[in-house]
Amino acid sequence: MGCVTRANLDKQPQEVAAMFDDVAAKYDRTNDVLSLGQARAWRRAVAEAVGAGPGDLVLDLGAGTGTSSLPFAEAGANVVPCDFSIGMLAEGKRRHPELALTAGDATRLPFADDSFDAVTISFALRNVHRTEAALAELLRVTKPGGKVVICEFSTPTWTPLRTVYTEYLMRALPPVANKVSSNPDAYVYLAESIRDWPDQPTLAALMQQAGWQRVAWRNLTGGIVALHRGFKG
């Protein structure tokens, strides 16, 4: 798999994992640049939506290097960062040896039923081969009454912003990635995967079909990103 530089939109797990292995060292810095500094604000919004406190057990799926898990640990929760990219996890362990970084596939999580008070996934659900299977697995490992918070790129609600955003994704993002990323081709896939991802109501419907209840969403940055929330009955 060493020759793989980017994945395709069929999102074969081995290809996606290899692509993220390749960008692990510079991934967080590149995201800050490409998001124009918004990535940190989005992480704060996720932490607030999850609302984890001391004693809560939180699964942070697609955690990569563990950066997204830090707010939960700082709030006193017990957080399990989980990702299927060994390269990302290795980089995370180097930076944050205190975190319980765990390897796992979103469609076959290595956790028992009803384990977590809250589960969350940020900017990773669209990279999973089978979205519906991942949503069902998240439900399986959540305790009754627990919640899911999904933070993912979405569809801007204002038409002019949507046009500008699409142009940025497909024209400006790759050249910027070429300057700051160790694997610019990976960001071509990421731009395509964002453009191909369902809008807010469609993702909400998929969550409901998986069994999540009281599903709702909140737009961030004009709908460029959306926070979806649901509860396990």
Rank of each mutant, 00 (worst) to 15 (best):
L34I: 15
L34C: 12
L34Q: 11
S35H: 09
S35E: 12
L36V: 14
L36P: 02
L36K: 12
Q38I: 04
A41F: 13
W42M: 14
W42I: 13
W42R: 12
W42V: 14
R43N: 13
A45H: 13
V46C: 14
V46K: 05
A47E: 06
A47I: 03
A47L: 04
E48M: 10
E48A: 15
A49G: 12
V50E: 12
G51H: 11
G51M: 10
A52H: 03
G53W: 03
P54Q: 13
P54C: 11
G55Q: 10
D56R: 04
D56M: 13
L57I: 06
L59N: 07
D60R: 01
D60Y: 05
D60F: 06
G62S: 14
G62E: 11
G62P: 05
A63D: 02
A63N: 11
A63P: 01
G64Y: 06
G64L: 08
G64N: 08
T65F: 08
G66Q: 02
T67C: 00
T67G: 07
S68M: 07
S69K: 07
L70V: 10
P71M: 10
P71R: 11
F72C: 09
F72A: 10
F72P: 02
A73L: 14
A73G: 06
E74M: 05
E74A: 15
A75W: 01
A75P: 01
A75L: 06
A77V: 01
A77S: 10
A77L: 02
V79A: 08
V79R: 00
V79W: 00
V79E: 00
V80C: 06
C82R: 00
D83W: 03
D83R: 02
D83C: 04
F84D: 07
F84R: 11
S85R: 07
S85C: 05
S85L: 05
S85F: 05
I86F: 06
I86Q: 13
M88Y: 07
M88D: 12
E91A: 14
G92N: 03
K93C: 01
R94C: 04
R94Y: 01
R95H: 09
H96K: 03
H96Y: 15
P97W: 04
P97C: 11
P97I: 06
E98Y: 04
L99I: 02
L99T: 01
A100I: 00
L101M: 12
L101R: 01
T102K: 02
A103T: 02
A103D: 00
G104Y: 05
D105P: 00
A106N: 07
T107A: 13
T107Q: 15
T107S: 12
R108F: 07
R108V: 01
R108L: 10
L109T: 07
L109P: 00
L109A: 09
L109H: 06
L109S: 08
L109Y: 05
P110T: 09
P110R: 08
P110H: 11
A112S: 14
A112N: 05
D113G: 09
D113V: 07
S115D: 02
S115V: 08
D117L: 02
A118F: 08
V119G: 10
V119P: 04
T120N: 11
T120P: 03
T120D: 08
F123Y: 15
F123R: 05
R126K: 14
R126D: 12
N127H: 15
N127W: 10
H129D: 13
H129V: 08
H129K: 13
R130M: 03
